[in-house]
Design a binder for these strands. Structure first.
Length: 557
RNA sequence: UGGGGUGUCGCCAAGUGGUUAAGGCACCGGACUUUGACUCCGGCAUCGCAGGUUCGAAUCCUGCCACCCCAGCCA
């Protein structure tokens, strides 16, 4: 897998330069999610970047929960996030919470007040907005901006003590109300949240620090050297630096921004993903169609494929959208090498092999992998009645069609060749059964004097096992569902899930939960772990095989 | 109309004044094939636009254009 070739990107170049110049002897990064939802493939990009850098440069990477807004967060999410990071194959150096630093943060705020660089403001949220000005007009200074240090200290202490109601006051940085950068117009540092129960600190605090104040300090306290975040924080960087420049910080990490991941035919924003779940368009956060780590895991994606994908797409500041094909290529490449082959008939059509003895069960040996003998083999059972896929038979077709036609011959994969003698139809003219005869001399060798081009898969009617198979496709009909303002529900792909009753070869009947196979000529599948727990044999299609026949056929129309 | 960013093949992305402008995905040919899979071979760009500097520019300068982000007591 192309994972072995180390990625190169502008951030790694900066790091290499910092190492070479001696600015840093050891690199320290961090992955800082807010525990307010489940991780998705976009987070994976950040995880692979941060942990990957630590790995490749002999550094460390922390997992830090950015938990400064108790209203939105929950332990349920911190547990899920930890599981996802571990599943992706990473181990954090330190596990921290921004809330671990609440007391220190408070003391740094006091330091700013003492330096005359922060003040308690009594403006209401509405007034703050009015005073802030607009993108093109400067703001006005708060009338509370010039309170004395003593008064500010007293008020801030009383804010902490719970003396004031929510929304009545904030602590603000005293920077520049005329700055062209809105983030520098006296940004809020602390707000009051009296009723909140924080998932880590309970009711210990009733004032909570804002991201812009917390993040640089948390980074500095952990000795982070490079603080990597997404593009929308670009104009927060002056504030990040301002905070560290004006307190007695142990060090000054460098914030570097990169583009977040956009993937075609799906959405990435927490709001929209939540909407999909809440409106019932998917079964939950781990629905196999979701771009969440939990969804991809249940779908059957491997951690290695996701890591490989993240390395393939690179890291830049360009706001682009990656095609699904890249993700699919990553999982196909991984599974082609590692997934044992099996046969499963998804749309069964009965075939009676008329010259095959009734009651006979022949055991055939079939390799688990066409190119890797070390993967061993399994046994197949051939009987007089078998199933093939309905799509593998046509009464007549042009020579491009390599499968079974009336009077034509194909090979049953891993078995004999058969020739179709008759298609039996019901009253509606629907084909219900095929009557064929086989050539006993074609096991493991080609017939004399004729060339059999087609190979189709099959399963014994009596020895095969019924299973439910869930065929997943892209969740949306449009490449960029987030664009425009059409309701998400109207953009969904109505065929994103198709459930079929299939027949699978006996060797997959006892598949382990989550075990992956290639169902030959169909795609890669994994046994659904959730359904397995209920004792049901259900397979999820992870991804189809590349299909040049479908392409050819499409072109002919 | 303020500020911050970004523009290299359909998508992602190397490139850091002198290279035939990497590579991956996709696509198009062809070989091989008991998976129309895999694999293999071959094809596939003058760098947003316009000027300028230079012996030489995707790389430097100037001016345009397009797109993204910012007016939460969210992160």
């Amino acid at each position: 897998m192309s994972e072995q070739s180390k990625p190169t990107n502008f951030i790694r170049q900066i790091i290499e330069a910092d190492l070479a110049s001696g600015k840093h002897k050891k690199i320290h990064t961090r992955f800082p999610p807010e525990p307010n939802g489940y991780l998705h493939i976009g987070h994976a990009k950040s995880i692979v970047l941060n942990f990957g850098i630590a790995e490749d440069y002999g550094g460390e990477c922390n997992l830090r929960f950015d938990d400064t807004n108790p209203h939105k967060e929950d332990v349920e999410y911190v547990e899920a996030i930890k599981e996802d990071v571990r599943w992706l194959g990473y181990q954090w150096s330190g596990l921290y919470y921004a809330s671990d630093y609440f007391e220190q943060l408070y003391q740094f705020a006091v330091e700013l007040i003492e330096k005359g660089l922060a003040y308690v403001c009594d403006l209401t949220p509405e007034q703050v907005r009015e005073y802030r000005g607009t993108l093109t007009e400067p703001g006005r200074e708060s009338p509370y901006r010039n309170r004395s240090v003593e008064e500010n200290l007293d008020l801030f202490r009383r804010m902490r003590a719970g003396e004031f109601p929510d929304g009545s006051r904030t602590l603000r940085a005293k920077i520049d109300m005329a700055s062209p950068n809105m983030n520098m117009r006296d940004p809020t540092l602390y707000r009051i949240r009296r009723g909140a129960i924080h998932h880590q600190t309970g009711d210990e605090w009733c004032i909570y620090p804002m991201y812009d104040f917390t993040h640089p300090i948390s980074d500095a306290l952990e000795g982070i050297t490079h603080s990597l975040c997404t593009l929308e924080f670009e104009d927060h960087r002056p504030l990040y630096d301002w905070v560290l420049d004006h307190i007695s910080a142990p060090c000054h990490p460098r914030q570097i921004e990169f583009a977040r991941l956009n993937l075609e035919y799906t959405v990435m924003s927490k709001r929209k993903l939540t909407q999909l779940v809440e409106e019932g368009h998917v079964e939950g956060w781990d629905d196999p169609r979701m771009p969440t780590i939990a969804g991809l895991r249940r779908r059957g994606y491997t951690p290695a494929a996701i890591r490989d994908f993240c390395n393939r797409i690179g890291v830049t500041k360009v706001d682009g959208t990656v095609e699904m094909g890249v993700l699919e290529a990553s999982i196909r490449e991984d599974l082609d090498r590692t997934a044992p082959r099996r046969m499963a008939v998804l749309d069964p059509l009965k075939v009676v092999i008329i010259n095959y003895p009734e009651g006979k069960v022949e055991t055939l040996e079939a390799p688990n992998h066409p190119k890797d003998d070390a993967m061993g083999s399994r046994r197949l059972k051939l009987t007089r009645e078998i199933y093939i896929d309905r799509a593998d038979f046509r009464e007549s077709a042009n020579k491009k069609y390599k499968r079974l036609v009336l009077g034509g011959e194909v090979r049953l994969r891993n078995a004999y060749t058969i020739i179709c003698d008759e298609a039996v139809k019901d009253d509606q003219g629907e084909i219900v059964e095929l009557r064929c005869h086989y050539d006993p001399d074609t096991l493991g060798r080609n017939p004399e004097g004729r060339k059999v081009r087609g190979v189709i898969h099959w399963v014994s009617a009596s020895e095969g096992v019924p299973a439910e198979v869930r065929l997943y496709d892209r969740l949306f009909r449009v490449p960029n569902p987030a664009a425009g303002d059409a309701p998400l529900g109207e953009l969904l792909n109505p065929d994103s899930l198709q459930v079929v009753q299939a027949v699978v070869e006996p060797a997959v009947a006892d598949a382990a939960p989550g075990e992956r196979f290639q169902f030959e000529r169909e795609g890669y599948f994994c046994r659904d772990a959730v359904e397995a727990e209920r004792g049901r044999l259900v397979f999820n299609r992870i991804v189809t095989l590349r299909d040049s026949w479908a392409k050819l056929e499409g072109k002919q129309r």
